[in-house]
């Protein structure tokens, strides 16, 4: 039992990441509103950012700035830097997705996926009948 608890607590950051990731994916799957889907996607991506950042953390390490002390323990800066790039990508994705949502709203008058699907399937059925 103790083992299990240690297992869970020692890797609590990964559990957080997994929970966040599942929440994000679940929202993307279950919500019909396009904006909510984008939010879900954001949560999903955030979990990955957390994953990278916590991965680079070294217990007791400080920020990776040269202090002159040779015994100083640093956190690994590379994952942090990488995730900066990923965040930029994430922002770009979100903004593009939001822009698309706006355009969809303009073109269809709705951003509810079930309504969009009804409209599109009607259009397909009409094409099939011509």
């Amino acid at each position: 039992m103790d083992d299990l608890i240690t297992q869970i607590t020692a890797h609590y950051n990964y559990w957080m990441v997994i929970i966040l990731m599942m929440i994000g994916l679940y929202i993307t799957i279950s919500r019909g509103n396009l904006i909510k889907k984008i939010v879900g996607l954001n949560i999903f991506q955030t979990s990955v950012f957390m994953f990278y950042i916590s991965m680079g953390k070294v217990t007791g390490g400080t920020a990776p700035i040269l202090t002159g002390n040779p015994d100083e323990v640093y956190s690994n800066p590379l994952p942090h830097v990488l995730i900066l790039t990923a965040i930029v990508v994430g922002i770009a994705t979100t903004s593009l997705a939001l822009a698309l949502a706006v355009r969809i709203r303009e073109a269809y008058g709705t951003i509810e996926e079930d309504e969009l699907l009804t409209i599109e399937r009607d259009a397909e059925a009409a094409e099939d009948k011509i």
Binding site: L25, T28, I29, E113, L117, R121
Partner: peptide, 14 residues
């Protein structure tokens, strides 16, 4: 062949 919902697609990935 007709449009699938995003949810279904993501479900497949999962």
């Amino acid at each position: 062949a007709n449009s699938a919902s995003t949810g279904t697609m993501v479900l497949w990935i999962a």
